[in-house]
Design a protein around this nucleic acid. Structure first.
Lengths: 186, 186, 186, 186
DNA sequence: CATGAATGAGGCTTCATTCAT
DNA sequence: TATGAATGAAGCCTCATTCAT
């Protein structure tokens, strides 16, 4: 049954988000209401299960819409849109992202699911594309690092409010602060 | 013997840096060339050992010099000095810090060794102090987040070179970029 | 397989009878010719295993026939039958009972397998029932204590012969002595 | 220091009463405020310590006055005095006695501190002596068993009140019941 | 005499995984 | 396809005891 496989993936995701790769196959099996051994029949071993689950969710949640904003002509709008969008996505998937960064930091993940790298690389590409399309000379690497820094600080530092819980006013004020640091520089 | 205790702490530190809290007491014992049981006699349990080891290293490596720079009168110098100093310390203790951030992200650490919080808080205090002493109106929280973001990006993103491996020229160019984002804003 | 579970229970019983709750899970596993871990899969932990095993044997060996004798009309016959029956059962399960009393004395048992209490309570009930059915005024608590005392003395004091090894003549003489203490009193 | 040895014995007694022979040397050392190793220097090993401690307390609490009552001429008084005295001593040393019986039941004690045997034997001797002095024909073994049964039932069965907490009236009523069972028999 | 330091042996328990159906 | 049963390996921790001072 495709059904059962999908159900395992969903349940496993929840468990992995909560506990990372350390989560036990038993916990996953319980959450999925499936015999432990079924996981092994379907995914070979825990690592494969983990990778499958994470890849599947990364595709669904992160790859989509990645480069849409690059087309915007105004750089301020481009930045605003990219920061807002990424902070939204990240804060909505906060626990997943935290877990993935943690596992990455501990070197437990294969390169194919290196989230920080993915974020950084896709930012660099987006910025490059924007620069090219608008004939701008931008230090895309530095911008990407700065943006990533912003995103990471939202994920890792203590927060009063998550980004997606801010009012529109607060959100705009915050975005303005972030954006100005990029624009005046140039 | 203080000697053997110290030796355990040093060895445990190396093991914990490599493997995080997951490291086994056996690994620690092997590295320290000590019977496993000795760890328990001396530290009670694995968690206590971990906390003791981490606290000790945090005190030695991070608390020192924390507020020195606040006294600087020129804000640019203040920022330069604080960024340079923190990036240096962090990149020299890269693996330790990565591990601590990872464990923190997974919620495995007690508040007493919450490194991201410590970094953020001490930055905020330092900036506040600088602002007060020089009669400046600074959004210290925002600055602290921006600075933390810079530090985190250096720790987490893929790097060509570590900060402490940069030439003086590269280092200065980098610092200038970072600093300008703060100054022009105000 | 119900088979293996039953086999574990039987082996565990033998080991627990010999060593009490102190018996190690390893000993049980060896006796049952099963991997140690199997015990935990099946019973959760040592305590649960112990309780399960003991409950099962108590049900099989002690609860049966408990109140049969109460129906007897003649009080002497009632006493004779109850003493004979209980001494038989107890002396046949001597080591089990001794172990349970020992663990109970040390406060190591949950109330559900408190053997002394069970014996005393069921005696009291049986006597009450006999008294009621035959319209007698009996101090059932005192009788139950006296009977329990007899049983305990057989279990705990040094014995030349176990009750179940006595000849019929010896057994009758003994029973007569015990019974007369109850009857003449009233 | 005799002092420290005595202090260890006293503390060890408390711990052993609470936990039996299972009590750890660490617990004993803590209670005695002495280094664990001191126990071994003084007593060789845990078993020796245990035996020493128990022998010492048995001498102090049980051997004294054992045969005093045998001299009484009236058998009823003799029984009353012996039952009252033993129940008093036993209920005052309830936990110690329970522990000793428990360890005895589990076969953990050397014959020299077999408490049930000691009680039974001394009762038999006392009764024999009383019979001899008063020219009576008593089945001393049976009496001793009956008496022991009474004592054991007080130690092991659930109790509303300990013997030493009974009012004088209650105590007398109880003693009368017990005694009559012996006298009318003959 | 007393102790701080250290340990080998062993206990309970959990984990990912295989076997047999 | 799915699972109930079983397990080897390993983890944390405790125990009685010895060593060296």
């Amino acid at each position: 049954m495709r059904d059962k496989t999908e159900q395992i993936i969903q349940s496993a995701l929840q468990v992995f988000i909560r506990k990372g790769f350390q989560a036990t196959t038993q916990e996953v099996a319980n959450e999925a209401k499936v015999a432990e051994v079924t996981l092994f029949r379907k995914f070979g071993n825990k690592q494969q299960l983990f990778i499958t689950v994470i890849k599947s969710v990364l595709e669904k949640k992160f790859y989509a819409h990645l480069m849409e904003q690059a087309k915007t002509h105004d750089t301020e709008d481009f930045l605003r849109s990219i920061i807002d969008n990424r902070l939204n996505v990240l804060s909505k998937n906060r626990n997943l992202v935290k877990m993935l960064i943690a596992e990455n930091l501990m070197g437990n993940l294969p390169p194919e699911i290196n989230l920080p790298d993915m974020i950084f690389t896709s930012l660099t590409h987006g910025i490059d594309q924007h620069a090219q399309q608008n004939n701008l000379d931008i230090d895309s690497t530095h911008w990407a690092r700065q943006l990533s820094g912003i995103f990471l600080s939202h994920l890792i530092l203590p927060n009063e409010k998550l980004y997606n819980e801010l009012s529109e006013g607060e959100r705009n004020r915050l975005l303005n602060k972030y954006i100005s640091a990029f624009l005046i520089n140039e």
